[in-house]
Amino acid sequence: MESVNETRPRKSKSWKEKLTPLLFIGPHLFFFLIFLAYPTIYGLVISFHNWNFFGDMSFAGLENYANILWVTDSLYFEYFWTAFRATFIFVILSVPPLIIIPLLIAVAINAKPPGQNFFRALFYAPSLLSVVTVVLIWIWLLDTNAGLVNYYIGTLGLDAIPWLTRTPWVWISLVLMTIWWTIGTNMILFLAGLGEISDQLYEAAKIDGANKIQQFFHVTLPGLKGPMAFVLVMTTLASFNVMAQPQLATGGGPGYETRVLILYIYEVGFTGGNPRAGLAAAMSVVLGMILLCISLVQFKLMSREK
């Protein structure tokens, strides 16, 4: 009898134990299914059809994929890969500074200089602004003929720089505003990571005679491996998904120079008199696949190193 009495509460406890986590996960699962799983699958379905949001979908097989992947004389092939090129340029130009600059700032702030909280807030503040605000501020500053930046460049006796109309300046401007806007988030992540590194490691390094630079490369960087992998992947993904900055600052111009993928997908799917949901969905799927591969490679590389 005693043994029965003992096992009973245990049994009901294990039943509860099993259910409780589900209760916590449940709401998220619910929203995940509705807002992520269902649209993703539906998007996949649309990508095999022609559809303009009205009327019925008509099955198109692989036509949408063909038009962007292997029918090289299709207009969409040209547009898609031009847009891919634009996106890629942005990623290549923006990811390194978006990692290096916040890292250096985080290290500096972590050294606890006077006014560290002020600096922390200063660098983080732009992240709280909406992208529209950020772009408007920068358009204003970078105006070719009436902007503050060119005014100062003029006082140095140099020619005005066409920040927002010509390559390569358009890229520099877009990257500049993105850096200013988003370094705060990465900085906070690095700061959290730095806090995790034990002081004993630095002391040990000091005793071994390592100078500050050696400490940075042999203690700080390895200690930040976790946050670094996360920041790298997230920043790359975010840069691939850039849209609002070129949309607002250059309208994708000059020509098609800064018409990045998401902007182009949006144009195909949602603007003009003849939206092409199927083609836009196919492009999104291709972009999604590319992003998945890149993230996997990055994670593999980051976790292989010891």
Partner: peptide
Amino acid sequence: PADVQADGEVTL
């Protein structure tokens, strides 16, 4: 002027 960017003409 050349290189009048988005809204630059309005500002001037």
